[in-house]
Design a protein around this nucleic acid. Structure first.
Length: 330
DNA sequence: AGATTATTCCACTGTTGCAC
DNA sequence: GTGCAACAGTGGAATAATCT
């Protein structure tokens, strides 16, 4: 909008609104602007009582904090209305309007009773196109956050637009839609944090938290997200947390090696293999064998019958006169 | 095959530390 | 205090991988 037009509206407003009947729509003067090609463009400007303006179900912005609304109320009180808000006619309720752009000002007026009516430009657009209009207006404003964008994209997808089409229209690389769509996959507990600090939780952050949620669950994600916000950690820090959850460090397995020598034998352990060779005196042999066999029952897997026979036969062989117990468990 | 998702790379910006 | 280089952080583009 040309600057001189804004200034003209601001100076007109105070007088016009002072005389307004707040319960009826007043047609303002049809202003004429000059477009880029030099053609005259008429604008359908009306004063609309704020209570006749409904929210847009496809609104491009999600977060309206009380601070934002009271700041806008103060601006309106101090400076009046610089620019008209933008509306379409409510197709379901004749005489009512749906906001395209300017919902913060409408809320400032309804909540803080600043102005009874706002100057509005009425557009002939579909609901979906009116939402895109608001989106494009918001893109030029600092308060428009990734979370707002993401929720808007979700609404458009619900209306049947594809992610590819959204990316094209929003002038974003198609792959960026992955980051934006991550918000929708986040659990409510995380989204509450996002709503509190929407600027801190960019689309990249949302995507990282989604990955963390998938890998480590809600508790860990909530802990990390809270720390990220409260300690003002960097996105890189967050990425590191996510990577650590997805690819936990493989602790190097130190081979367990044990080798104990006795005067009557030895005991060796190397990782999962146990080896024992020990001579047992005749009077202790039976008790030792029973205790050892009981212990073996807890880990040993029975071999096939043929193997068992072979093993027993070998042990009972007259050539095996040793009194030593030779055991290998692996 | 085309769409979607995931990962990596690169350029830009802001911050910090150092020499002068 | 100023100028500069090095570095970190970030957003976005490009590319690879996966899914439908």
């Amino acid at each position: 909008m040309p600057k001189n037009f804004s200034n003209r509206l601001a100076s007109q407003d105070a007088g016009l609104i002072a005389t307004l009947n707040p319960t009826s729509v007043t047609t303002a003067e049809i202003s004429a602007d000059t477009d880029a090609g030099g053609a005259s463009v008429s604008r359908n400007l009306v004063h609309i009582p704020v209570e006749l303006i409904d929210p847009n179900p496809l609104a491009p912005r999600e977060v309206y904090t009380p601070e934002m609304i009271s700041a806008r109320a103060k601006d309106l009180r101090d400076q009046g209305q610089h620019d008209p808000i933008h509306v379409i006619r409510n197709p379901e309720y004749p005489g009512r309007y749906i906001i395209c752009d300017g919902w913060t000002r409408v809320q400032a007026c309804t909540t803080h009773k600043v102005l009874p009516a706002l100057l509005a430009q009425v557009h002939e657009l579909s609901l979906q196109e009116s939402a895109w209009f608001g989106y494009e207006q918001n893109e030029g404003r600092a308060q428009h956050t990734d979370f707002d964008r993401a929720m808007f994209y979700e609404k458009m997808i619900a209306q049947g637009e594809t992610a590819a089409e959204l990316a094209r229209r929003a002038k974003l690389p198609r792959a960026m839609m992955t980051f934006y769509r991550a918000y929708k996959k986040l659990p409510d507990e995380i989204l509450d944090l996002v709503r509190e600090r929407p600027l801190k939780f960019s689309a990249r952050v949302a995507y990282a938290l989604h990955q963390l949620h998938e890998a480590a669950g809600i508790r860990r994600t909530l802990t990390v997200a809270t720390k990220f916000a409260e300690e003002d950690q960097t996105v890189r820090w967050l990425s590191n947390q996510v990577q650590a959850a997805i690819h936990p460090k493989q602790h190097k397995v130190v081979p367990t090696t044990k080798h104990i020598k006795y005067s009557n034998g030895y005991y060796k352990q190397r990782e999962d293999a146990f080896e024992l060779s020990i001579e047992v005196e005749a009077d202790k042999r039976e008790a030792f064998a029973q205790a050892l066999e009981a212990l073996l029952e807890t880990v040993a897997v029975k071999a096939a019958p043929t193997d068992q026979k072979t093993a027993i036969a070998a042990h009972e062989s007259p050539t095996s006169a040793s009194t030593a117990a030779d055991i290998k468990v692996s």
